[in-house]
Nucleic acid binder design. Sequence first.
DNA 1: TATTGACTTAGAGCGAACTCTAGGTGTTAT
DNA 2: ATAACACCTAGAGTTCGCTCTAAGTCAATA
Lengths: 127, 127
Amino acid sequence: MTISEVSKKYNLTQDTIRYYEKIGLLPKVPRSKNGIRDFDEEACNWIEFIKCMRNAGMEIEILIKYVNLFRQGESTVKERRQLLEEQKSKLLEKQKSINETLDRLNYKIKLYDEIEAGTRKDFTEKI
Amino acid sequence: MTISEVSKKYNLTQDTIRYYEKIGLLPKVPRSKNGIRDFDEEACNWIEFIKCMRNAGMEIEILIKYVNLFRQGESTVKERRQLLEEQKSKLLEKQKSINETLDRLNYKIKLYDEIEAGTRKDFTEKI
DNA sequence: TATTGACTTAGAGCGAACTCTAGGTGTTAT
DNA sequence: ATAACACCTAGAGTTCGCTCTAAGTCAATA
């Protein structure tokens, strides 16, 4: 698979994919004899994994750390588990923040609806 | 309330608070006669609101837009509602991404647990 | 054979959101 | 009165995560 195909498949720019490889986020992307990247299934799986983690806001440095542990083989399973557990709690925190904000947005939207409907005449919005 | 008090109360640096004011995120922070900020309840409420929205990842530009609409008074209620609704869908998207990633992390953590426990001898992690 | 087009690299540039620096003022404590 | 301290400003610098540029290689088509 060429970089342009991968780029379309995962909706990432070619620049981003090259960047990810350069900084060590993609272990062993195969190359054809003239140096052109030829992504196999494993390389695609890594891209998909990295994309998923990045979408949730996981830091690139953490992901590089994970990839490096992965490269070192089975001896790093404990450490990898620990890393993922830490990231999981970070995501749970983030989830909490988002839920709080959603509650707040819903409250305000409801308030604005009432104001528009004229149900609420006292325009004392508490920010 | 001085800036250092506000800084402690909301766990934001003084620099960040000044920055927020400078770029127009904090409508009318009162000042004492020698030019020192003296945050009243409304200013604090704004800080708390901005902090909540920023924690959920809302962009500063959007928040500036909201603040500007707010300043223009009741005539902008419809527009403000619209803006909040848009941000709400963005947050719902983000929530979805996080949930997907959490599922994936849970799956991998379970896998690592099995490997460590020896329940799974075939070390065929699919990334 | 010339040019088009997809790929390659190293490295510069960019936008977002702070964060820090330098230099200054004003109040309080010794 | 002098020093320490909390505040002020403008503007430069930093970090993150890309994104773009310039210059080059190679294969295929006009």
